[in-house]
Structure formats: structure tokens, C-alpha cells
């Protein structure tokens, strides 16, 4: 069985500076992997490199295999084909992740149409519309018929992120990359979106690469976790193992900080 994503010895350079060095990780079918680290630790860059979308001027070396196919050094045209089927991404800020001038239903429909074209299926307008409703119901958006006609600025943050998840699902990807998907949401909404993501990943049998700086959030969403610091992997293992018995001093600090924060919250309540 081919890994959904296998990154080996990935390094990213910009202007002679090393941003990520020697990162290796893999995500198998149905596996949920977390990538944690502070801002600037290179976790989002690793994700962008995984889908071949590094910003202009950055160079990647090493190996990134998406569904068995090498991404680094491959022409963009060939990677595009992979992207539509092998992987989908959810971003931190749903407001910028949705086209502000397109109705939500149309945005989801666009992905569905593209996917149908790619599969060589012809999908009628009614089929697409029915699929949009099904996906919107799947991510628990209320009143799908009405919200499908809404623009992003007419929705709440949680609704927007649900719509973004529906768009990712519309690709029917085997791997979902979620880059801080709950950071821009308030705590209650955060919990709901996490719950939704977890259910969807389990039921659809997708692989998940979950990127976050938030230890507790990662802990609830994934099975295995990798800790990234200043572009290098410092620790990896099962969630319980890493959180209960962190070995690297940096991970120990992270866990301590999270515990202290929890206690402070607990005391405040």
C-alpha cells in the first residue's frame, strides 16, 4: 500500500537561509497526523511543499511523494492533476479562503464540477445542485438551501469554516491537510468544527495532516504527533506518549506551558 503522503528529508531554503531542514513524515490511509510548533517553525511551509505550492523564490530539496508520485521537481501541470484528487486543504482564515464575490453554493459546485470533469463523468446541473445540498448538510450547515445563496460576508466565522470544509470534501480527497483550521474561531465553535473534522475524517476514511500551534487542539484531533522547532523535527510519537512523557526539552516546555494555561483557565473558572 502506497502512503498518501511521504516526505523524506525535506529542506526548504529562501535567500540562502534554511527555513526547514531534514523533515521526514508520512501519512497513511485513515491515519491522523499532527504537526505542531510555534509560529515560524516551518509547519505551514512543510504543508505547502507537500502540495507543491511553495511561494516564489523558495526552493525545496529532498523528496515529497503524494500518492506515490514525486512532487519536488515536477512540472506544475502534472502536480495539478494530483491535487484535485489526492489532497485538499483547509486554511486558518475562512474569510480569505472563500471567494468573497461568489455565492457559497456556487463555490462548492465549482469544485464538484471540476471533480466530475476529471473523472470523465458528465454531471447535470441538478446532480451538482443536489450534491451541494448533501455536502452542506454533511458539514451541518443550517438551512443549506438559503445559505447556498449567501456570500461569505453574510455568514458567521463557524459557518464559513464549515463551508470551506464542504469545499475540501467536494474534491473527495484521500488526504486532507488542515492548516490551523480552528485558530480563527471562538472556543465553542472551535470544538464543534474539530468534532466535525474528526467525524468526517473517520467516516470518509481520509488521511489527515493537522497543523497547529495549539497542543490541546492537536491532541483531540490526531493519533500521532510531530513537533517542529526552527525547521527541524525534535520529537515524534503517539499523542499520549508525547504529551505524557515528552523527551525533548522544547516539547517539555510546550506541554508545561499548555498545562499552566489549563490551570490558569481552571482557576479563573
Amino acid at each position: 500500500m502506497v502512503d498518501l503522503l511521504r516526505i523524506e528529508n525535506l529542506s526548504i531554503h529562501y535567500d540562502g537561509r534554511s527555513l526547514v531542514s531534514g523533515v521526514s513524515l508520512s501519512v497513511n490511509v485513515g491515519e491522523r497526523v499532527g504537526l505542531i510548533g510555534e509560529s515560524g517553525s516551518g509547519k505551514s511551509l512543510t504543508a505547502l511543499a507537500a502540495i507543491g505550492l511553495l511561494p516564489e523564490g523558495m526552493t525545496a530539496s529532498g523528496s515529497v511523494r503524494l500518492a506515490g508520485q514525486e512532487v519536488i521537481g515536477t512540472a506544475d501541470r502534472d502536480v495539478v492533476i494530483l491535487r484535485g484528487t489526492a489532497v485538499a486543504t483547509i486554511f486558518q482564515e475562512p474569510l480569505t479562503a472563500l471567494d468573497p464575490l461568489m455565492r457559497i453554493g456556487d463555490q462548492i459546485a465549482e469544485v464538484l464540477r471540476r471533480r466530475a470533469r476529471r473523472d470523465g463523468r458528465s454531471a447535470s446541473r441538478a446532480d451538482i445542485a443536489a450534491d451541494v445540498m448533501r455536502l452542506m448538510a454533511r458539514v451541518a450547515l443550517p438551512e443549506p438551501a438559503r445559505l447556498a445563496r449567501a456570500y461569505p460576508h453574510e455568514m458567521s466565522g463557524g459557518q464559513r469554516q464549515r463551508a470551506a470544509i464542504a469545499m475540501a470534501l467536494a474534491c473527495r480527497p484521500s488526504l486532507l491537510i488542515a492548516d490551523e483550521p480552528t485558530t480563527a474561531l471562538d472556543v465553542t465553535t472551535q470544538a464543534e468544527v474539530l468534532q466535525l473534522l474528526e467525524t468526517l475524517v473517520r467516516e470518509e476514511g481520509m488521511g489527515l495532516l493537522f497543523i497547529s500551534h495549539d497542543l490541546p487542539v492537536v491532541g483531540t484531533a490526531v493519533d500521532r504527533v510531530l513537533v517542529l522547532r526552527a525547521g527541524e523535527l525534535v520529537e515524534e510519537g503517539a499523542v499520549a506518549e508525547v504529551f505524557d512523557r515528552p523527551r525533548h526539552p522544547y516539547t517539555i516546555d510546550l506541554v508545561k506551558a499548555a498545562r499552566a494555561f489549563d490551570r490558569a483557565i481552571g482557576a479563573a473558572l
Binding site: 495539478v80 486543504t89 482564515e93
Partner: peptide, 16 residues
């Protein structure tokens, strides 16, 4: 914008 990245991730070409 992120929605452009999202569109590219889902396999939209430049003309699209």
C-alpha cells in the same frame, strides 16, 4: 488570497 491556493490545491488551472 487563500481561496486561490485552495483552488489550486483542488486542481484549478491558471485560466480557470
Amino acid at each position: 488570497m487563500d481561496y486561490i491556493t485552495a483552488a489550486r490545491v483542488s486542481g484549478t488551472g491558471w485560466l480557470g
